[in-house]
Amino acid sequence: MLRTVDTGVLDLAVSTAVCLADTAIWVAFGTGKHLRHIPAHDIAKELGYEKARALPMFHAFTGCDTVLSFAGRGKKTAFDIWKSFDEVTPVFSSLMTDPSTFNDDCMSVLEAYVVLLYDRTCTETTVDSARKNIFTTKDRSMDNIPPTKAALLQHTKRAIYQGGYVWGQALVRCPVSPSPNTHGWQKSGGQGWQPFWTLLPEAVASCSELLKCGCKKGCPRQCKCVRAAHKCTSLCRDTSDMMYAIGHDYEQECFLCHHIHRVWLCQWVMVAFPAEESFSSYRQE
């Protein structure tokens, strides 16, 4: 009998149940009137060996105590996508049992899974292309589109460390784990281990043209543009101090797909498209 209020412990109990044949594992979950006795072994049988074994890895990848979750995507949504996208099950399972098997093929499947997390109808299979597609066609905010591949890679490494090297060795007497600095963590001064988010520069530094403020007349010190040491662009409400003249076009590396794009700034809208495409057809009169 296990007693816990942590869903991670419950997931680990279900995963362990498939390794301990003919062993009943009961979990007393919750407190007070919400206390329930859950048969982890029955859940394992219902899920099947591979999915039950992969459950802790799924839990780590979609968010746990040491790995952040995907913004706005809870466990129910993530599990529903998992049920409809069986291709990710062997990846979760292999990373749970042997984290060293992680490779580009695993990453491709995980990318496709994350794309479905953000848009079940999206036909893209990579997060960078889906990020661009969803941002430009679905009118989503930056917080509601998939992460870049660079950020997802570091997230995946942290999930592998927790799900594979920590939880995956729960039955090992003397587990051996690599240094966290090879799995999405870094030492930060006297604060101990901190997440290493991405190799890419921040969007505000690499694509400042998307920064905008809502100042009606002039920009005070707390203005976004002032804090970032940038002049206002045509996206801002007050364009009296614009960095670029209205109607000016220039080339810029896109923060969505990291390709060089030509950008046209007009008074009301900024349209970005590949430099090799016809510029005149996109021009706003």
Results as ranks from 00 to 15, higher is better:
Trp185Cys: 02
Trp26Ala: 07
Gly218His: 04
Gly8Tyr: 08
Asp128Arg: 07
Trp197Arg: 15
Thr89Tyr: 05
Ala150Glu: 10
Lys45Ile: 08
Phe29Asn: 01
Cys174Lys: 14
Val5Pro: 05
Pro99Ser: 02
Ala21Lys: 15
Ser93Gly: 10
Val67Asn: 01
Tyr49Gln: 15
Arg73His: 14
Ser240Ala: 09
Lys132Trp: 03
Pro56Phe: 10
Arg131Phe: 01
Lys83Leu: 14
Pro146Leu: 03
Phe279Arg: 09
Asp143Ala: 10
Pro178Tyr: 11
Gln191Ser: 08
Ala150Val: 05
Met142Trp: 15
Lys83Arg: 13
Lys75Tyr: 11
Glu209Lys: 05
Thr31Leu: 05
Val166Asp: 12
Glu209Ile: 11
Pro147Thr: 13
Lys83Met: 13
Glu251Lys: 03
Arg3Thr: 14
Lys75His: 08
Gly164Ser: 02
Gly8Asp: 09
Cys174Glu: 13
Arg131Asp: 00
Val91Pro: 00
Gly184Val: 06
Lys45Asp: 07
Ile43Cys: 03
Asp6Gln: 07
Met242Asn: 14
Gln194Phe: 14
Trp167Pro: 00
Ala52Leu: 06
Gln162Met: 08
Cys236Phe: 02
Gly163Cys: 05
Val269Met: 13
Ala159Gln: 01
Gln162Pro: 00
Thr62Lys: 01
Cys219His: 07
Asp22Lys: 05
Gly192Ile: 04
Ala24Gln: 12
Ala52Pro: 03
Met270Arg: 06
Asp241Tyr: 11
Asp241Trp: 10
Val67Gln: 03
Arg158Cys: 00
Gly190Val: 14
Asp139Tyr: 09
Ala159Asn: 01
Ala71Cys: 09
Thr233Ala: 05
Pro180Cys: 06
Ala44Ile: 05
Tyr113Trp: 15
Gly48Ile: 10
Lys231Ser: 14
Val263Asp: 00
Leu117Met: 01
Val176Trp: 11
Pro178Leu: 06
Gly74Gln: 02
Ala17Pro: 01
Gly48Cys: 10
Lys187Tyr: 15
Gly168Met: 01
Gln154Leu: 11
Leu116Val: 01
Val269Ile: 13
His41Ile: 04
Val166Tyr: 14
Val226Leu: 02
Val14Ile: 13
Ala203Ile: 11
Leu10Glu: 02
Glu253Pro: 03
Thr233Trp: 01
Cys219Met: 09
Gly48Met: 02
Val271Leu: 08
Leu199Val: 13
Pro56Asn: 10
Arg237Phe: 14
Ala52Arg: 06
Cys223Met: 08
Tyr282Ile: 07
Leu20Phe: 12
Leu110Cys: 06
Ala60Gln: 09
Phe85Glu: 02
Lys216Val: 09
His41Met: 07
